[in-house]
Design a binder for these strands. Structure first.
Lengths: 134, 134
DNA sequence: TTACACTTGCAAGTCATTTGCATTTAGTAT
DNA sequence: ATACTAAATGCAAATGACTTGCAAGTGTAA
């Protein structure tokens, strides 16, 4: 884990290690507030501002990516989690799915349908009703 | 256009007509502020709060959909525009694309890979560098 | 171990969006 | 047409996610 930070030229601080650890253990995307709460539970005394700053720099350095779940805060996830989300618009349950075909097609789109040379990132979120809420 | 509003049980007001008109003429997603500015240019004296409320109710009634372009405000678009966006992370240019395969695959995903019965909506946005910014 | 740039915490600020409440207005019944 | 009523609007103020300035603390390379 330290490797990751060093490679990016970051200093290894308790805050960064803890936040990285939280994300690597989490199955679902997290927003700043929930990261902050988890830090508290871990007895880490880290300011909420630091959480915001860390999420921001991790995102611009390609460690995390933003996930839009249509809530009022921004969610993040480790960038190497290759899956997408299905969100229940009633109970907010988030289910993951992975599908290689989606990625293939996005590749095609870039080269054939768009003038863009390369896609760095994409976001794909589905919204519907989960089994319980149907 | 009035039909749309009546069907949803809305009262037909100048504000709603104007906002619907703005969206149907716009090629790109709009946020509250840009809708408000367009209203001003059209000499319509409509409060910004009304814009927010209209965008919100149109969205929950399925007239508009939210688009996350990773800016600091929320963008919206008519729900019947069946395309996705490629956003240049450098100059903020938004290019549209349409691709039936994406929709097909999403259909498969819902039935095969997920416990969700039906997807109501999805969001797919790509981020990269446009030709000029490459 | 020392110096210095990078990090953090605190307080205050910013800005998109929401809310309470009084007023106005569209749609319906009279 | 007219009156009625629920819905829609405007205004001012509040909310809440997120950012910033600055002083103090801390990794890290030499």
């Amino acid at each position: 884990m330290k490797e990751v930070l060093k490679k990016k030229g970051y200093k290894i601080t308790p805050a960064r290690m803890a936040i990285l650890e939280i994300f690597s253990k989490s199955q679902s995307p997290l927003d700043a507030e929930s990261v902050y709460k988890k830090l508290k539970k871990m007895q880490k005394n880290i300011n909420e501002v630091t959480v915001y700053r860390t999420l921001s720099s991790f995102t611009s350095e390609g460690i995390l990516k933003r996930i839009d779940l249509r809530k009022n805060s921004t969610y993040f996830e480790l960038i190497d989690k290759h899956h997408h989300h299905i969100v229940c618009t009633n109970c907010d349950t988030v289910e993951d799915f992975e599908n290689g075909e989606v990625e293939k097609i996005l590749g095609k789109i870039v080269t054939k349908l768009s003038k863009f040379k390369r896609i760095r990132e994409h976001s794909l979120e589905l919204f519907g009703l989960c089994v319980k809420c149907t």
